[in-house]
């Protein structure tokens, strides 16, 4: 009897671990941010009100609850800047995700087809950039892309161009930065999907009349879709809220929500609006997550 109860609780505890994690590191911070987004900006510390405190007691809390309002969200809809920033972020993230996929797929495919002895080395090379700081790697791109940088020097040296290309401080530089920075997150899930694929399936397709290219599109690619979905999520979601890359590589015309949020928070000291921006961003991201999860569940079936 005791034993049965023991296993019951042990199983419960195992299930509890991820929920506890989610509660502590996602739900609680989420509600804190949500509460700030419903507050009013003040010139004080902290720079918003009401501030809930343990000393208020139940009645004080209820009173403060009534002070919360959706004004900040209404405010967001009033200024087209926010809408444009969201739209532009999603667009940049989508294009970057697609470009990353295009670059990563051949890499992952080549790795999966490589002899078993060299695969660990290739895998190491993919992960290698993580050994240096992300910030340093983005700064390195400034040195490469700037008008008198390595790329322009090279292209002018071999006579392809005569005037330096203006890449730095444009959206192109942001694409390059995102594709470069997030490439491993795309390569790894693609590689793991392609690597476990049975090579005789390709032979079977060719045996039944498919050219190698046909076999790729009818067999290899459909079977790698779980990897494609996972990789796209891993790139798209952080790319939408990306701040460092557009800030360092992008120009004034590169509008991304991460920068807008940073401005609200640090320049305007408007925590409630910054929080509202973050909450809406989260809502926007939840849509593709749920959609992809649905796709994945369907393909796993």
């Amino acid at each position: 009897m005791m034993g049965a109860i023991g296993t019951f609780f042990r199983k419960r505890i195992v299930i509890m671990v991820p929920y506890a994690w989610l509660t502590v590191f996602f739900l609680i911070p989420f509600f804190i941010v949500l509460r700030i987004s419903l507050s009013t900006s003040e010139i004080a510390m902290p720079p918003y009100s009401p501030v809930f405190s343990m000393a208020d007691g139940w009645a004080g809390w209820m009173e403060k609850f009534n002070l919360l309002s959706f004004d900040n969200f209404v405010w967001l809809t009033g200024d087209p800047l926010y809408f444009e920033a969201y739209f532009s972020s999603v667009k940049i993230a989508l294009i970057s995700t697609l470009l990353t996929l295009l670059v990563a797929y051949p890499i992952a495919y080549g790795m999966a087809k490589a002899p078993g002895t060299v695969r660990p080395t290739l895998l190491m090379l993919v992960i290698l950039p993580f050994w240096t700081s992300f910030l340093i790697r983005v700064y390195a791109w400034i040195a490469i892309l700037k008008p008198e940088g390595l790329l322009n020097e090279l292209l002018m040296g071999i006579g392809v161009i005569h005037e330096p290309l203006i890449i730095l401080n444009t959206t192109y530089a942001v694409y390059i930065g995102i594709v470069y920075s997030y490439l491993p997150f795309m390569v790894l899930p693609l590689y793991s999907a392609l690597e476990k694929m049975d090579g005789t399936l390709i032979e079977a397709a060719e045996d039944l009349g498919c050219t190698p290219v046909g076999a790729f599109w009818k067999v290899t690619f459909p079977l790698s879709i779980p990897g494609v979905i996972a990789g796209c999520m891993l790139v798209f979601i952080p790319a939408v809220g990306e701040f460092v890359i557009p800030d360092l590589l992008g120009g004034s015309e590169t509008l991304m929500i991460g920068r807008t949020l940073w401005n609200e928070f640090n320049a305007n000291h408007d925590w409630p609006v910054a929080s509202a921006v973050a909450i809406v961003l989260l809502a926007i991201l939840i849509i593709p997550i749920v959609f992809f999860q649905h796709l994945q569940a369907k393909s796993a079936e």
Binding site: T200, E203, A204, D207, L208, T211
Partner: peptide, 17 residues
Amino acid sequence: PPYRRPVNMMFQSYALF
């Protein structure tokens, strides 16, 4: 190439898609 031969193969592992 295999895709132009008038033969078909039944694989040991079946290799069903």
